[in-house]
Structure formats: C-alpha cells, structure tokens
Design a protein around this nucleic acid. Sequence first.
DNA 1: TAGATTGTTAATCGATTAACAATC
DNA 2: TAGATTGTTAATCGATTAACAATC
Lengths: 241, 241
Amino acid sequence: MSQHRPTGPNGRSGGVPALPDLPEATVARLPEYLRALHHIAETGNDTISSEGLAAAAGVNSAKLRKDLSHLGSYGTRGVGYDVALLIDQIEFTLGLTQRRAVALVGVGNLGHALAGYAGFASRGFRIAALFDADQARVGEPINGLDVRHISELATVAAAESIAIGVIATPAAAAQDVADALVAAGVTSILNFAPCVLSVPEGVDVRKVDLAIELQILSFHEHRKSALTSLPGGLAEEAVGT
Amino acid sequence: MSQHRPTGPNGRSGGVPALPDLPEATVARLPEYLRALHHIAETGNDTISSEGLAAAAGVNSAKLRKDLSHLGSYGTRGVGYDVALLIDQIEFTLGLTQRRAVALVGVGNLGHALAGYAGFASRGFRIAALFDADQARVGEPINGLDVRHISELATVAAAESIAIGVIATPAAAAQDVADALVAAGVTSILNFAPCVLSVPEGVDVRKVDLAIELQILSFHEHRKSALTSLPGGLAEEAVGT
DNA sequence: TAGATTGTTAATCGATTAACAATC
DNA sequence: TAGATTGTTAATCGATTAACAATC
C-alpha cells in the first residue's frame, strides 16, 4: 500500500531533536485517536483515561497505551491524559501543525465529491488546486476553485508548495498522472484509481479502492451464509466469541 | 477496522465442503490479485507466473504464492497459473459468483458520487437502493434510481435481499443509520463517516476515512522534511534501501 | 494512605520472506 | 533431460495483548 522507507535505527550524529521511529500500525491509528480526542474535547472533557479514549477510538486500551507510549509520556498515572496536550502531541507527530496543500487531479464523479469534502479542510488540509486532462472542464469552478489543465501542474505545485496529490482519474490515466505529480515535486500520493502505481523511492503512495472494500465484505458475507446453511447449531458455535 | 469473528479451528462434524480459514491479510489482498488478473486476461494472456502476477498486484511473489496456496493448488509448476481458472477461484472465494445487492445511505456530496461509481457494478455489486433522511431529496433520481426515505429501509432491504450497506452520511447520523441497517438485516457495512460504529456480533464493518489517509501521508511528509533539513548527507543515508 | 491509571514488560500471535524441494 | 516455477518450510519480523510494577 504505502511504499515505505525504513528510517534506520535512528543512527544520527548531531544534536538534532530526534523523531522517534513509530511502528506503521501505530501511525495508522494516530489519526483515529486524534479524531476521537477532538470529539471528546467538544463534549467538554479535558481529561480522558486510556480506557475511555480507547473505547472512543474503537481499540483496546492496552494497544492505545502502547501506541501513545511511542510518542513519549504524556499521561498522568492515576488520572489519565490531558486532552488538549495529547491533541497537540499527535498533531505535531502527524505533521499537522501546518495546513498542507493538496492537489486533486481528476474532477469526474468522485473527484468532484472530494473537491467538496469538508473533512479535508477541517482536518489539516487545503485543496489548493484542481486539475483535469479534459479541456472541456478546464475553467469550471468547483467549490471556489477553477479547474486547471493538467499541463499546469508543475507550475502550480511549485507556486502553492504542494507536496501531496490525490488521483481521482480513471485507472488508465493514473500512472501518467502519478508521473506528472512526481515530476512536479509531489512526494505523497493518495490514489483512488483501481491500479498499482509505480513511483520512485521516497514517494509514498496510499490507495483507496472502493470496490475492494466491498469485495472484502463480500468474502465475509459468503462465509456467514455458508455457516448459516450448515446443519443446525453449528452456525452459532462457529461464530465463537 | 472490521469487527471480525474468529471462525474457530474449523472444528466441524458433517461432510460439508470445508471453507478453509484464510488469514485476514490474505483476504484483503485477493481483490487486488483479482483486479490484476482481469487486467492480464484483457491483454490476452491465459497463463501468468507468480512473479508476473505479483508485479501486477504490487506485492512480492513469495507472498502471492503463499496467499494463493491457502485457496488450494491451482498453479502448474514450471508453467504458472491459468488466468481464467484463478479468476474463477478467487471470485468464488470472495463470494462474487452472485452479484450482491447494496444499499447506499446518504446522497450528499460523496454519496452521490458513490451512487454513480461504475467500479461497483463492474466488480460484483449492484446498488439496489438509495436512501436519505432528507425528505427534500426523496424522489430525486440518481443514476436511474429514485432516492427513498430512510424509513423504507427495512421493507426495501427485504425485498431486494440487501445484505451490504454503505454509509455516506455525516458522522452525527452514522450510528443511527447503522442501527437501522442492522435492524433491516444488513450484516456488512462500509462506513465513510468519520466515526466509530458499534454493531452487534456477526456484523462486519469496514471503514474508509479520507482525511485519515491524508493524515498518514502527512506523517511521512513530516518525516521526509525533517530528514531533508538535517545537516548535509544524512538525508540520503537515512532513507536507506 | 487507598484507589486509579499509566507505561512497560514479556508472552503470544499472525504476517512476511527467502530458500528450496517437488514437479511440471 | 534441463529449465522453469510452484507450493511449502522455517526463520524472522512486527503487532497485539494481558498483566503488573510504577506512580500519581
């Protein structure tokens, strides 16, 4: 999913503040904790136990504490975590202290929806530019931004300091778009096209494939219906804890 | 992410055809192999090696062979895999031999795009009904389907044999929608709302949170820029293989 | 102090990978 | 037969979890 460069055993020389190595599984959960913490903050709580936060994030509390211990020691034994402090720590770790500019390529069905998705803005990102290869769409205003032609990518990316790109094109176009993004200096790509992208070392790719999510659910449906049709009683038994 | 019931050590009595236990990580990759295989089939190849398929799916070949070995032995040593046969096997395993009916709840920005997403139809699913809580949207035709009021969920789900639901509502509404889906007999949910759902045992939930994907990328951006700003040379060194 | 809760340890579990014997 | 490639083994690695000592 994400091309990942091992950061090595932190073998550094200078007195630079060390960014600790975080397990990838932990990194993937931090945003969930952050979302839960914002929710908790909104309800007026300024302290939360690992048990409470874990419940809000849908994980078990041992895992949560283990995850947070990688960031440092920001809880108080016998009390819990200071919500505001923990929000700050996680936001810092995720690099969300600056609002990051994002380029969105492909303003079809899905791209159009993503361009208007309020969750990006509220959670640390700014859609800074929209691109499409179709001249007929260039100039079209979406959510306050005019769609630009893909050929302008490099210029705009430089001008807006864009390091993150979102691909919402058909699969057939995605690799070319990825190449263009990389050429424009983008080093992180979120790919909604159902295909594998090849990118140089140092560029991170994450993929969201909507049909794959349904197919995974389909697998479990298939299992569930197979169990149901077994001779009496077995279904319950096999479902276990 | 997905509430998962361990299926137990296959402890069965009767002579029912055994569905082998598959590691969850393998299940999550099968759809990717399937997509790659369809692509390979379209290019006219009827045989593919593990090396070739692995490359097309973006994984290493040892992992691919290990994954496929869980389904049984469908390759030929010295030759490779029969593309059509493997497609059939994976589709069977994923329960894609029947086209599955899906209910989509919430036809805002994102829901609208999902309702029109061709990838669902082409990869085993049929959006059978659209729902919204907003009476103003009820009756609106989207992609050949009229939006219905959420109160009709149970009736329609039964009539259309819907077992899979997609939630594309605001977070605040998502839990109520999930409850309604479960009450209507839905046993698999794909949740696009940024919140944790609580569902009964036996119901599977998968979650897609678009902002979380960007936040994970942001983390890596943060790391990369920290490395870049280190005193000369270290950046290259730390990036490693 | 007594009660609560963190941070850490250590055991367990599952996933990945390289290597290679089996076999086409 | 020789070459190619699978399916499996076994070692390694990373993630999860329960338990509890540390400490507020």
